[in-house]
Design a binder for these strands. Structure first.
Ligand SMILES: [Zn+2]
Ligand SMILES: [Zn+2]
Ligand SMILES: [Zn+2]
Ligand SMILES: [Zn+2]
Lengths: 135, 135
DNA sequence: TTGCACACGTTATACCGTTACACAATCGTG
DNA sequence: CACGATTGTGTAACGGTATAACGTGTGCAA
């Protein structure tokens, strides 16, 4: 059972999906991945979704809720995948992944104030990346 | 053109959709809304989606990305709809809406550090609400 | 009057994700 | 080894989410 970012012992389908996401420069939808992997033998959405579920579980891939898409984790020390924040460029689609202690603390504190048992944070910031911002 | 939370001058379809969301205790999907409003003459998804787009634009409704659903804004002074955070109970589906200055500041600061021109924040916390948390 | 903006209605289609069922490989245990 | 349990796989069918591409009617301003 793989752990952390060492992509050891992935199954064939998991490795295929992981490969597609790793080579991509931005997020991919499940169906885009499927199209890219048809020549490798994948034929049905479920094959992709099953692999994605595992990859997310292993911490190798993030799901971007506001995009209905998936992106390979690029952050070497990204341990706490439950509190990662993303900046998504609405123009070029690039994704910046960040984990910020202060942000996590504040969210935890807000949850406590509301007696809310926090399990997972979805934080997705939309806007324009540095390259796409007009001067 | 309506502004703020005074629901003035909504069109017929907008008023119908707003009514459904206001009476609901939690988030509703577009298709659930459609089903509820069939007797009122709504027949196609697009009619609901068009109304929802406007209601979100007016600041009367929030879209919850992680749920693919919509919820009426319950916060009287909810001005900055672009930085509202939500706590969503995975058990009962209830939604707590919060706007926190410190949180907004931290996000703004993180964006600035990355030269990211922040337009909209999606912050959705998943977990268990107070009522659903076992002792 | 003419053009424009906007709400509306309908059909069809695209995109996202799951259920249900069947089969094969693997693994720990008696 | 044999057995059951678990996990991965493959396929078909389906259901849920969202938009495209039409066309209609109304109000208003140039
Ligand atoms: Zn990561
Ligand atoms: Zn960009
Ligand atoms: Zn609000
Ligand atoms: Zn609850």
């Amino acid at each position: 059972m793989p752990h952390g970012h060492a992509s050891e012992a992935l199954t064939k389908n998991q490795a295929l999906v992981m490969g597609a996401l790793s080579e991509a420069t931005g997020p991919l939808s499940a169906y885009t991945i499927l199209d890219q992997l048809r020549d490798d033998g994948l034929r049905a959405p479920l094959q992709v979704y099953r692999a994605l579920d595992k990859l997310v579980e292993f911490g190798l891939v993030h799901r971007l809720e506001s995009l209905n898409a998936f992106v390979a984790c690029r952050q070497p020390g990204c341990d706490s995948h439950e509190r990662t924040a993303f900046m998504i460029c609405d123009d070029c689609g690039s994704v910046i992944e960040i984990t910020d202690k202060a942000l996590a603390r504040r969210l935890k504190s807000l949850a406590q104030d509301a007696s809310f048992a926090l399990k997972k944070s979805t934080i997705e910031l939309r806007g324009l990346c540095a390259a796409c911002t007009p001067m």
